[in-house]
Simulated scan of single mutants.
Amino acid sequence: MKLYAAVLFTLAFLLGSAIAQDVTEIISRDLYETMLKHRNRFYSYDAFVAAARSFDGFGTTGDLITRKRELAAFFGQTSHETTGGWDNAPDGRYAWGYYFIEEQDNPPAYCDPGWPCASGKKYYGRGPIQLSHNYNYKQAGDNGAIRRDLINNPELVATDATISFKTAIWFWMTPQGNKPSSHNVILGRWTPSAADRAAGRVPGYGAITNIINGGIACGRGPHPSSGDRIGFYKRYCDLLGINYGGNLNCRDQKPF
C-alpha cells in the first residue's frame, strides 16, 4: 500500500511539473485577451499555444520569474512590430499590439541575392515578428517545427496563424548571424565578447531590440522604436507581476 501511494505521489508530482512548464500556466486565455485588447483576431490564443509548444524551452526554461520575463519580452518586441497604437489611444498605446498582420505602406520584395526567390512573390514583414527577407523565409520554413515551403508560399505567414506564430518563435529561439538568440539573452545565457562590451552591448532587454532591429533603434540616443518596445514590455511585466530587470534600452549600443 505504501509503495502504491508513493507511485501515485511521484506521478502527481511529475504531472504537476509538466503542467507548470507549459506556457498556458503563465499566459491564460483571459490574460492573453487582456494583454492584446485590440489585436487582430487572426492572432488566436490557440495558435500561440500550439506554436509555443512546438519549440522546446520557449517560455518553459528556468524558474517562474524567468519564464514570465521571457514571455513578457517576446510579446513586448512582437507587439511593437505589429502595433496599431498611438498617443491617447483607447486603453493606451500599449494595448494595441498584434493589430497588423502584414507590413504596411507598399513594402519592397526583400529578395536578397544568394537566396532563392519565387517569381511574383514578396518577402516583406508578416506575422508577430514581421518576418522579412527571403533568407529568413527560407530558414524558417526549413525549421523542423515548421517544415513548409515559405519561399513559394510566403503568404502562409499571414494566413495560417500557427505558422505565423511559429516563424516569430523560430526567430526568437535562433541565433541570427553574429547575434545571439533573443531566447538566450533573456535567460541570461549570453556572455558578451570583448567587442560586444566595447560596443556597449550588454545583457538585457535592450540587447534583444538590438538583435531584432538594431540598425534603426540602437546607438542613436533615445529613439521612438526602442521606447515603444520598452513600453510594451513594461506593461506585460506589470500584468505578470515581475520587475523589469536592467539594461532595457539600446540607445548607447552600437548595432550588431
Results as ranks from 00 to 15, higher is better:
Glu25Ile: 08
Gly204Ala: 03
Asn249Asp: 15
Ala50His: 04
Leu71Glu: 00
Asn213Tyr: 09
Phe58Met: 07
Asn247Gly: 11
Asp46Arg: 11
Tyr244Thr: 13
Asn152Thr: 05
Arg220Lys: 14
Gly206Leu: 03
Ser181Cys: 10
Cys218Gly: 00
Pro255Tyr: 15
Ser17Phe: 09
Arg220Tyr: 01
Pro255Ser: 15
Ile129His: 04
Arg67Gln: 08
Pro128Lys: 13
Lys2Pro: 03
Pro116Trp: 09
Asn134Cys: 10
Gly214Asn: 00
Ala89Phe: 08
Ala72Ser: 08
Phe58Gln: 00
Phe232Ala: 06
Leu156Ser: 04
Pro154Leu: 12
Gly144Val: 10
Asn247Glu: 13
Ile242Tyr: 10
Leu240Glu: 06
Asn178Val: 13
Ile212Phe: 00
Ala6Thr: 07
Thr66Trp: 06
Leu11Gly: 08
Asp196Ile: 06
Thr78Phe: 05
Glu102Asn: 14
Tyr98Gln: 12
Gly16Gln: 14
Trp172Cys: 09
Asn210Gly: 00
Asp149Gln: 04
Ser44Arg: 05
Ser79Glu: 05
Thr191His: 11
Gly215Asp: 03
Leu64Trp: 05
Gly125Cys: 12
Leu3His: 15
Ala52Pro: 01
Gly57Pro: 11
Asn247Phe: 13
Phe165Gly: 11
Gly206His: 00
Asp112Arg: 11
Ser79Gln: 05
Ile208Cys: 07
Ile26Leu: 02
Thr78Arg: 09
Arg93Gln: 12
Arg53Lys: 15
Ser79Thr: 02
Tyr32Met: 05
Thr10Asp: 00
Asp105Asn: 15
Asp228Met: 02
Leu14Thr: 13
Asp105Ala: 12
Asp87Lys: 14
